[in-house]
Design a protein around this nucleic acid. Sequence first.
DNA 1: AATGCAGCCAACCGCTCATAC
DNA 2: GGTATGAGCGGTTGGCTGCAT
Length: 303
Amino acid sequence: MGRGRAPCCAKVGLNKGSWTQEEDLRLIAYIQKHGHGNWRALPKLAGLLRCGKSCRLRWINYLRPDIKRGNFTKEEEDTIINLHKLLGNKWSKIASCLPGRTDNEIKNVWNTHLKKRLTSEERGSMSVDKPDDSQSSSSSSTYLSCYAHEEKDDPSLDFADLSIEMFELPMDIWGSPQQKDGTGDESSKVSPCSSSSDAMKDFLVTPDTVIQLESLSPWMEEEAAMAELTQRNSVEAEEGEGKSLEWLEYLEKELGLCGASEEMNQGSFVRDAAEQTEMEEDPVSSYFQQELTSTYPLDLRLS
DNA sequence: AATGCAGCCAACCGCTCATAC
DNA sequence: GGTATGAGCGGTTGGCTGCAT
């Protein structure tokens, strides 16, 4: 084990750098339809000139429906700091304690804000607890809240609702695109290669997305035809809502959020005895038991 | 208005881990 | 048990953006 390995794919002729809106759409559309059983094969099947790794990263860090965008709350920052004390640079583990946040995001926040904040605090500037964080830690200028959620500073954010709402967005794309955000996005310009934030924003907001999708790869046309057939043959296919729920369940499974929404709905997180025991031995769970027991829907799968 | 600089974030790279054969 | 492969993780970096001069 652990011998390292050859690159996940021949990188010749593959795109690198920022993802375009079209690439995002392809990826989302493909995963929405087929899931991501095999990352390595996915780009080819989806008609993407990317390596599987890149697709995975893009999905996990940006396109996943349950990504919580926006500023980190004070609570989240504190959680990160405390967990970092316990775990060190185990970003994925820390991320697993912060629903909707990715390891990459947390790592960035740590490196850019929290580390500095801690350093300055350690220097004895404790008395000057400047709300500098609010500006720095969030980098609000570039942190696009592309889903146009009002930021809830409440860490007990309704994760289930968030999941469902976000998850439904792509479905809208296929059917009736809606403007999720009532604010009316003035910046509806498509920036072809930018910053993914823009791509995503456009993807979500622009009502013309369906047209854009129609112009995508051949497989999508085939898929459309197949879908039509399926629609005739399957009652279930006509149940958009049912499909949505299935997809949500699938996504939750895939993303390890299994049962999160149910649990949230029930207002309690029931774990079996084994898990409980495991958690008790775990510094992270100890932390949460002490500090945040009822706050976050934990999905601690610490190895 | 132009330029330089610093901050920030998305994406890449290289490695390890997990698992199937 | 050894090997091949897929997936995941953490560190690093490229480039965009905003601010200061």
